[in-house]
Each structure stands twice: as C-alpha cells, then as structure tokens.
Amino acid sequence: MTPALAILRRECLRLLRRSSQLVQPLIFFSLIAILFPFALGQQTELLRQTGPAAVWLSVLLATTLSLEDIFRSDFEDGSLEQCIITLDALPLACAMKSLAHWLTCLVPLIGMALLMSFVYDLTPDARRALISALLLGTPVFSLVGTVASALTVGVRGGALLMALLILPLYIPVLIFGASAVHHATLGLPTLGEHYFLAGLAVLAATLAPFATAAGLRARLS
C-alpha cells in the first residue's frame, strides 16, 4: 500500500471511530435545514423554490463546524509536529486529509441532502442537479476548509473564527451550486454551472494542499 493510501485509510478510520464527530454534523445539518420552513412559512410552492438554497446553506454551516476537528487530535497528541518535520510530501498528506474529511463528513451530508430534497418536495430534475452539484462543489469545501483548519490549529476562538475565515471563500461554490438547482427547477440547462463547479474543484485540489502545508508550517515551526 502506498503511503498516501495508508494516510487516507488511517484518517478515515480515525474519523469513523469517533462516532460523535460523524453524526453531529448530520444532526446539525438536518436541524438547520428544517428551520427554514419555520421562518418562511409552509407553502409548498415557496419551499420548493427556497429548498435548494436551504440545503446548500445547511451543508455550508455543517461543514464549517466540522472543520475544526480535522487537525485537532493530531495537534493535541503532538503527531502533527512530527509529520511536519518528517514527511517530505506534506502537501500530499494534506490532500489526503481533505479527502478523508470529504469522505467521512461531506458524503454523509450529501446523503442527508438527498433526504431533505424529498422533505422540500423538489422536482426530480432539481434533485438530480442538487446532488450532482453537491458532489462537484463539496470537495472545494473540504479542500479550502483544510487550509483554514491548518491556520487555526491550536487557536482558541474556534467555530466563530473559522466561520469568519471560511465563509467568504465558499461563496463562489454557493453561487454556482444554488444556481444549478435553481435552473434545473425552471427546466433550464445546468451544464455551465457544473463546469464551473468542476473547475473550482480542480483548482482547489491543485492549490489548497500546498496552502495547507504552508499554513501548518507557519503555525507549528
């Protein structure tokens, strides 16, 4: 097994073993998503229109809360500093961190989002667009989120600071993601948005691991 895969496997197991870390974002996500009808009222037509936005915002907030944990335990037991000193391929390890976060946090969230799309009674087209846009857009959340997580590792102030750092950077994904579902609801083509989301994901995948590595070095050396 290559070192990268070993890191990925170890990360996923670590995240999966702490079941609370796995489940809490899901509960938080569902809770936020069901708050919208209380604020907006229960008209089905209105909720069908605002549902995609509600789901995207809930994913955004649940992700923001989960980011803190990416490096926390590694930092607390000191293994993070060891990694920075010993690993030659720190960016690769960071990329694996992001991938593990995506697999253990965001893929389950996308599953919940599918459930929510029934609650909000989205049309089949809108549902398909929502899931595919989430699949393309959420890797950006994980990758860019890992950078912010590295920058705030060991910092008090936690979730609020994280939200302030990360939410402005998530806006492009939110714009294209929400617009894809909106267009699908109207029966318009959504290929353009998907291309943009894929482009953002590729860009984030190429740059973010290096920024994460630089951030970790900045924080811990």
């Binding site: 950078v147 920058l151 750092l165 492009p172 617009s179 630089a214 951030g215 924080r219």
Partner: peptide, 28 residues
C-alpha cells in the same frame, strides 16, 4: 510572529480567491 506567518498564508490564499469571488459575483 506566528500570527503574522499564518496571516501571510491567509492573505495569499485571499488574493488567489479575490478574482474567483469577483467573477462569480459578476456572473451571479
């Protein structure tokens, strides 16, 4: 010093993101 170094990474990440944010907002 640690704050400044972390800020340096954040500022560079920000400057890469500014055009992306700007053009997606224009599109939106």
């Amino acid at each position: 010093r640690a704050a400044a170094r972390a800020g340096a990474v954040l500022a560079v990440v920000g400057i890469v993101n500014i055009p992306i944010i700007h053009y997606s907002v224009v599109w939106w």
